[in-house]
Design a protein around this nucleic acid. Structure first.
Lengths: 216, 216
DNA sequence: TAGATTGTTAATCGATTAACAATC
DNA sequence: TAGATTGTTAATCGATTAACAATC
């Protein structure tokens, strides 16, 4: 009862609010109304107010929203107010790119381990963190509290590794392998798929559609 | 006239259909009904049929869909049936990761140039392609037909480079910089934003929400 | 022909937008 | 107090699902 489910559409917009509020804060803006924010972000003021009121009333009639307060509250909703230990499995270019991100989500993400399948890279370092063999995963996960695992490895290994992760207590996976992991794991495991090819195909679709329109 | 606008939701599902059909094809499946595909992909059969019928009738009553034919037709809709020349601006780890992708979108994407701002990497090679200075962009774009530009560079340079690209004829940008480029460029420029931080925040949101539920 | 399954219309559901009373 | 702007309810719009006649 209570606790109506927040829709995916709303959740997907929260990071963007957080980002814009952060930029406003950097530019020294203290308060903002839903109307002003709506012009900035090109969404309706109604949507902003509806979205925020899923989580509570953060504004004040006649005044608007305090930028810092609202940014911080959205940060809390997104879980940015506490630390998350993360490991990366697969240290190809993409894995390295993620390992090198500075200030991931405002510093709340900490990379505590790197793993790879390829024998030849095991023992080498990325940014002072040694790359371990995936065979060490179970023992590593027993010794360390890890919340999030990132999969940046080929599709063919992804499912097997994901199952090992889940068996050893991981319940959140950020998946870059080109397969829908969520359909292959227990339902309570949180999987966020990033399919870059899908994104690029949406781009080529739009290119194609625009070119065909031109021809008419 | 006619040509009702295809919704974003539909377009975002097409790459996934394409992927599943490709896998079915690889496994030797010749035909499939919307019902079977719906069980496989965990979507409703109704949705599959509605989605496809935005583009035409690809099936046959009493038979279903021919896997290869449907896959190819969706490929055409996504623009995978002809080549797209692409350049990458920003050759950090992420840029390199994309430059090294094999068989991008079934071979329809060809990387024809790499560019960077950092003097020290100019002249070095990634996979036989020399990294050029961004200063060469205008002349390069005059000499080569390029359809898509990928931005894998820091946010602070992204807008300026994007404007140079657009001035020199690029009208499709795959943007990995953490800013909403589409709001800063002419409306007819196609921008596909990939905000990895946003994706990760959706993951931490769900983690957070799950943990709070547990506490109750 | 009988059975299966599409293409498509109609019904439902959910998300977005508009409106406005509450209130700072 | 008057003006501004929220929080929230109501109206609209669009997307998803259900149903079924058409047809292979």
């Amino acid at each position: 009862m209570g606790e109506r489910q927040i829709s995916k559409a709303v959740i997907s917009r929260l990071p963007r609010y957080h980002r814009y509020l952060g930029e406003l804060l950097n530019s020294g803006t203290e308060r903002i109304s839903s109307g002003e924010l709506s012009r900035l972000m090109k969404v309706t003021a109604s949507q902003i107010r509806q979205d925020l009121n899923n989580f509570g009333g953060f504004g004040q009639q006649g005044y608007g929203y305090n930028v810092r307060y609202l940014r911080d509250e959205i940060g809390k909703i997104l879980g940015l107010d506490h630390d998350h230990a993360m490991i990366i499995i697969g240290t190809g270019h993409l894995g390295k790119a993620l390992a090198n991100y500075e200030n991931f989500n405002r510093g709340s993400i900490h990379i505590v381990g790197l793993f790879d399948i390829r024998k030849e890279v095991i023992g080498t370092k990325v940014r002072n963190t040694e790359i371990r063999s995936v065979e060490e995963l179970p023992s590593f996960l027993k010794e360390h509290e890890v919340e999030i695992a990132v999969l940046t490895l080929p599709k063919k290994n992804a499912t097997e590794i994901a199952q090992i992760l889940v068996e050893n207590g991981i319940n959140a996976i950020w998946n870059f392998a080109y397969t829908d992991l969520n359909l292959q794991l227990p339902e309570d495991v949180i999987v966020e798929n990033v399919h870059l090819s899908d994104s690029l195909m949406q781009l080529t679709y739009r290119l194609n559609a625009a070119q065909q329109k031109e021809e008419n």
